[in-house]
Design a protein around this nucleic acid. Structure first.
Lengths: 104, 104
DNA sequence: GAAATACATAAGCGCATGCTTATTCAAAGC
DNA sequence: GCTTTGAATAAGCATGCGCTTATGTATTTC
């Protein structure tokens, strides 16, 4: 189940840090490693998990692996959250209400 | 960090099932256990983790422990998600745009 | 084509995690 | 008061996870 993979993928702080870095644009594995105090294989493994969860994607270019945030990769997370809309924070609930009005 | 706790708490399918059950209203530990194929201590441990993550709360009544979804317990999740607004699914992005217009 | 570079995979290790059974504790029922 | 019930805690165990070093595999560079 993809839903579970997303939660697990994001439950690790190093992976969230990697994901955060990708938010500013495409980066290769070496660039993503900079600053993070982990080995090269560790980054490679984290990237594999994020990719498996559908959160990022790779574009291979020669010997480089360029990673980027997968479009709509967070979609399953929102799909899950929608099931608990009645427990959303007030400001989000206000948004939801607005949308319904707009759709009518 | 609470953010991490939420992701970890929700990364387990049994805990998500418990949370899902609570969405329909307050339930005690025994009721939450029904159907789920785990021991009583297991449920108790899962509930402790969900509570620690701020997702649920307890109301003790005699020897019963009545659990319910914590109001705004998902707030940290939304706070995290907001940092990646540019990667939100299109339908959510539309909502965000609406809110900004309203606030002005 | 040999060396260097970028990355992935393999193997192994320590620790966290989720589970169980056993026990404890408090409230209810008789 | 003793038993039963609801729930938490303790202890122990198997498995999962994140990390490391070592090795493999392309691609680039000279």
């Amino acid at each position: 189940m993809n839903e579970m993979e997303i939660f697990r993928a994001l439950s690790d702080s190093t992976r969230r840090a990697v994901f955060e870095r990708l938010a500013s644009g495409e980066k290769n594995a070496t660039e993503l490693r900079e600053g993070l105090n982990v080995s090269q294989p560790a980054i490679s493994q984290h990237l594999a998990i994020l990719k498996e969860a559908g959160l990022i994607r790779v574009r291979r270019e020669g010997r480089n692996a360029n990673y980027s945030v997968a479009p709509d990769g967070l979609e399953p997370l929102f799909a899950w959250l929608e099931r608990y809309r009645s427990f959303w924070p007030a400001r989000v609930e206000r948004l939801q209400h607005l949308l319904k009005e707009m759709d009518q």
